[in-house]
Structures are given as C-alpha cells and as structure tokens.
Design a protein around this nucleic acid. Structure first.
Lengths: 144, 144
DNA sequence: CTAACTGCAAAGTTTTTGCAATTGC
DNA sequence: GCAATTGCAAAAACTTTGCAGTTAG
C-alpha cells in the first residue's frame, strides 16, 4: 500500500559500486567476497537482501542466461548476453540490429509485453584458441 | 572417452512422458510430485538424475527464463517463452519473424554462436482481466 | 555378467528468515 | 523516536553424491 521508504546504507552503496565496477556478471557469493575485502564484517544475508532490493529498485538486473544460480549485472541499459559453453564466461552483446517484434509477440500470446531478454551461447575466442592448440598438438592421433 | 551406454528405465520414461504432457514448464519438484502419483516409490534423486540425463540427450530443455530455479521444457523445437510478472506463469511464443542476426553477434563478440534464447516478460491475459475487475470495483476510491 | 540405474540418506549449494542491536532520516 | 537496515545463526529451498541393491542388455 503505502510506499516503502528506502534508507541509504554503506553496505548497499558498496554492493552497487562492486557491481558497477565489473563486467563479469557475478554471483551473490562473488559479490560477498569482494565486499568483505572492504567491509570484513558484512554478512551474506545483507548481500542477498541488498541484491534483491537493488533489483526491485531497478538499479541492477538479474542475468537470465544462467541456470540454477542467479547472476547480477550492474549495467541496466538494454543489451544482451552471450555465454561460453566451455568456460562459462558471460560477455555483453550490444543491442543488435534485428529488432525484436514486440507487437507480434503481444498478438500471438495475449500478453502485454513489457521487456525481453536475448541470450546467446557459443564458444568464446579464448576457448577457440585453446581448442586450436589442442588439435595442433594431437595432429595425427585422431582418436575420439 | 568411450561412449556411455544409456539403458532405458521406467522412471526415465515416466519423467519424459510427464514433461511432454504439460505446457507448464515445471520445476524438478513438480515433476517429482507428478511422478509419485504413478510411481509412489520414485525418489527425488532419480528425478534430478534423469532430468540431467534427458537434458544431455537433448530430449528436454532447460528453460532459461527463470531465476534461481531450473524449469524444464519437454518441447525442444525452437520457440521462445514469455513469463507473467504477476502470476509467474510461463507460456510459449512461437518463433517470431524477426530473425536474430547470429552473424552480427558473432562479429561483435568474437564467439562462435551456437544458439540463442529469447524471453519476454509481461502481463498475461488472465492477470489483465483481474486488474480490470479490481479497478472496476474500486471505481471512485482511487487510493494508492 | 556387468555396467547402468534406483532408492535412500546424507551432504552440498544457494537463498531466505527471525531476532536483537544499530543506524539513517 | 521510529522504521529501515544489519549481523548472526538457523532454517528453507534446491541439487548432487555415496552406497548397496536391482535391473536392462
């Protein structure tokens, strides 16, 4: 009903700063580890509570690309993600030209469409390199 | 190395049948509950193991639209999902005309692009109805 | 036969919650 | 002051693993 008042806190500021300073789309646990470096007594519960709060405020986003574990993104501008199936790293993809046809989806589904996420999976350039090296070493012993 | 032999099992058949007979993109726990109706002694570990196995076989898909909890989809054909932010239901969206420009993403990211997922969020028609009713009842007492 | 599969129980992970103390407005 | 926030610990929720017995090929 009545609007909840959000007070500032050093813990929340720190968490937001950490998320904005990385491009790694980290988990809550990673954020917690980073936060402890600066504020050793911060508790994991505080990290989780603030991640949820920041998400509700729209200051951070959950990253939908991952399965059983939530990752966060301090960049809330529209952009997409790509995940490497070999090493698990997640990179940003700037918005691509193919515009997603929201109206068509609305018509097909009966929903009021509010947002969309577009995620890609593939093999990152580092893992492509690794694979090349591996094959070159083998060259000849083509066993499966 | 050598290829693993997969033996059939009544438990796995049942789990696949359950997933193919629903459009609800269920969690492992829901699948477990359904399975117990037909096979009361089935264990949750078996459900998890078989969901992972079926996923590796490509017979089911994980549904990426959801956050901390894995949902499964017995339909492996290319299609997208839309989730209602009010009630949480997940519906299918047939593939839309705007084709995702894989080549451009590859160029931008340096990845070999293998697949993509496109998820929408919005408000489903049932929740739109509910909202209408709620507003009509109020009509006049416009309190926030 | 034997390797895959199962049920059970236990452990591992990730996230949330209850509570008394603290802090921002 | 009063309500939001915190740290701690405990619980809840979700998933995996070890093991002995069973089953499919």
């Amino acid at each position: 009903m009545s609007k909840r008042i959000i007070k500032s806190s050093k813990q929340r500021d720190l968490i937001l700063r950490i998320l904005r300073s990385t491009k790694s789309h980290p988990t809550a646990d990673w954020v917690y580890d980073q936060a402890r470096k600066e504020m050793p007594k911060i508790s994991k519960a505080t990290v989780y509570r603030n991640l949820n709060l920041l998400k509700e405020e729209g200051k951070i986003r959950e990253c939908t690309i991952c399965k059983g574990i939530i990752r966060y993104d301090g960049d809330v501008r529209l952009h997409y993600h790509i995940r490497c199936i070999e090493c698990g790293r997640i990179d940003d993809v700037p918005i691509v030209t193919s515009v997603v046809c929201t109206e068509e989806v609305a018509k097909l589904s009966g929903y009021i469409v509010l947002s969309h996420h577009l995620d890609f999976t593939g093999i990152c350039s580092k893992c492509q390199e690794k694979e090349k090296e591996r094959i070159n070493k083998k060259s000849g012993a083509g066993r499966d």
